[in-house]
């Protein structure tokens, strides 16, 4: 908030087109999963610059990360920003769930007072709002027409300067290395958060295996198990996203398994300290874990269909379970030799 604009409908908050150090720090925290579920701003009307009745009106979600990815590309312009209530969810996900939907747009358009401020009757929506908005219904419901802008905010200046014409390239959702690298840390942290309790539980159970005393057993298995566990998680949540286009196979479970296999084969060049049976089990577990988390990356990816995910899971999940059991079985069996 850098100021306030006095209008016929009252005071409209003016936001900066520049991100503050706090904005950047908060974005980083959210990217790493801290406070991600509650990073919101109040829905309603905002202004950039000093918009008048002829200024364009852009519509976005009340996820602060979405809002902040939009603002820097509006520098030097006078625009209205209509922020819909999407429960702090980004545009694309919220559109898919219906929160960034026709009803919310109609309601917010009225309650914000934007209708009264504009001499024209056109709204610009992000293209990825498409799954939630029936653009052809808007004129009948509100008198406004909807134009879909580009997918990325970075293309907005060119789009706006070209009288709201998007190129074919702007309309294509790409999934470049930079975006995959940005998503990977969160994948890693969520994977660790979800799986560490199981890892600890397994280590505590392996303490009962024959051999030395319980405590020594636990420590030995924790240290030995850290390798396949850590390698599997890293291969699935870091290597798989980063190398996604170069990994063979179309199914993410296959891509993940290949990434795990590469890591497992790489580890063979080191002298592995355990019994051969334990080593085999460990290497198999790396492939299984990497396949599992690779498969989960379908959720963050931008081109997977639900039908496809269901299809790959039908064969991947049973194989992952079987592989996991065999891997753990080898590990356990080795304790008896």
């Amino acid at each position: 908030m850098v100021g306030a604009l006095d209008t016929v409908i009252g005071v409209v908050p003016v936001v900066s087109a520049f991100l503050s150090a706090t904005d950047r720090w908060q974005s980083l925290k959210v990217r790493l999963g801290f406070g991600r579920m509650n990073y919101q701003l109040d829905p309603g009307l905002y202004a950039v610059g000093a918009p008048d009745a002829k200024a364009q009106a852009l519509v976005t979600a009340n996820y602060k990360l979405s809002f902040d990815s939009l603002r820097p590309h509006l520098a030097g312009r006078d625009l209205w920003l209509l922020v819909l209530d999407t429960n702090g969810v980004n545009v694309w996900c919220a559109a898919g769930k219906g929160a960034f939907g026709t009803d919310e747009l109609v309601t917010r358009l009225r309650s914000s007072g934007l209708e009264q401020l504009l001499a024209h009757r056109q709204l610009i929506l992000p293209q990825l709002a498409g799954p939630g908005i029936a653009a052809h219904l808007l004129p009948k419901l509100t008198g406004f027409s909807v134009r879909y802008g580009p997918i990325l905010a970075v293309d907005l200046p060119v789009y706006l300067d070209a009288h709201c014409q998007a190129t074919a390239a702007m309309r294509l959702k790409k999934f470049p290395f930079s975006e995959r690298a940005l998503l990977s840390p969160l994948e890693l942290l969520l994977a660790l958060k979800g799986s560490l309790p199981f890892f600890i539980l397994l280590v505590l159970l392996f303490g009962f295996a024959p051999g030395n005393g319980y405590q020594q057993n636990v420590i030995a298995h924790a240290l030995a198990g850290l390798f396949p566990y850590g390698a599997g998680v890293l291969a699935g949540t870091v290597l798989t996203p980063l190398l996604l286009p170069y990994l063979p196979g179309r199914a993410f479970a296959v891509k993940g398994a290949v990434a795990g296999l590469v890591v497992a084969v790489g580890l063979l060049f080191f002298s592995l300290p355990q019994h051969w049976l334990q080593n085999s089990g460990g290497l198999l577990l790396i492939v299984v874990l990497s396949s599992y988390w690779g498969m989960k990356f379908t959720g963050a990816s931008t081109y997977t269909s639900l039908s496809g995910v269901k299809k790959e899971m039908r064969y991947a999940v049973p194989l992952q379970i079987a592989g996991g059991l065999v891997g753990l079985g080898c590990w356990l069996a080795a304790c008896f030799f």
Partner: peptide, 28 residues
């Protein structure tokens, strides 16, 4: 096609049909 459903939602004559959903293993 990733079955996002945007095309069907925005088709004024309902010429397109797709079982829209999110391609996410975690959701499944």
């Amino acid at each position: 096609c990733m079955e996002c459903g945007a095309c069907a939602k925005n088709c004024p004559v309902e010429a397109i049909s797709v079982k829209a959903g999110v391609g996410c293993a975690e959701a499944v």
